[in-house]
């Protein structure tokens, strides 16, 4: 019998392999009435973008994912969290990132999943390059992503200068 205080299990990974080849079932047990899964995929931006390349900071990126999962676990009653981020070259339509949250009830799972994606996009060391007709270009960070993260912190976004 598990107690209600059992900490959520956390699984994070960075991989250069297609995420489509991985199954996600960590939290499928009798405790979890809710499973919320977000998959971020490569958009073609009306045909302009042909592929993406993702760079990371080996070591720090994995640790940063663990840390944000730990924050989600403190904030919501969750049973399991999985965050997998792909790096290297990724084709149109493929998964870039997968966040899966299992909880007893849906509100915690929905909120934690949204929180994890918002914080990931503004605080975890990962960088995108786009391939278009004129070659590879780094993607600029968007202010709206910083604002999305800030709404979870109850304060204005911190901008590094």
């Amino acid at each position: 019998m598990t107690t209600t205080k059992a900490p959520a299990t956390i699984e994070v990974a960075i991989t250069a392999e297609p995420l489509e080849d991985r199954s996600s079932g960590e939290g499928r047990d009798g405790r979890s009435g809710a499973e919320v899964r977000f998959s971020g995929r490569v958009r073609d931006e009306s045909g302009r973008v042909q592929a993406l390349f993702l760079e990371h900071y080996p070591g720090m990126t994995e640790n940063a994912l663990e840390k944000i999962a730990g924050h989600a676990r403190e904030r919501w009653p969750l049973n399991a969290i999985e965050i997998i981020h792909r790096v290297g070259e990724i084709r149109i339509g493929e998964e870039i990132v997968r966040v899966v949250v299992w909880a007893g009830h849906r509100h915690a799972a929905f909120e934690a999943c949204a929180f994890l994606m918002d914080i990931l996009k503004s605080q975890v060391p990962l960088w995108k390059k786009e391939l278009s007709d004129d070659g590879w270009h780094w993607v600029e960070a968007r202010q709206r992503d910083a604002e999305a993260a800030a709404r979870w912190m109850g304060g204005p976004s911190e901008r590094a200068r």
Binding site: H56, Y57, V97, K121, S122, V124, P125, W127, W138, E140
Partner: peptide, 10 residues
């Protein structure tokens, strides 16, 4: 000390 542009993952 690691220096980098604002992150753009996800």
């Amino acid at each position: 000390v690691a220096l980098f542009p604002p992150v753009t993952g996800g």
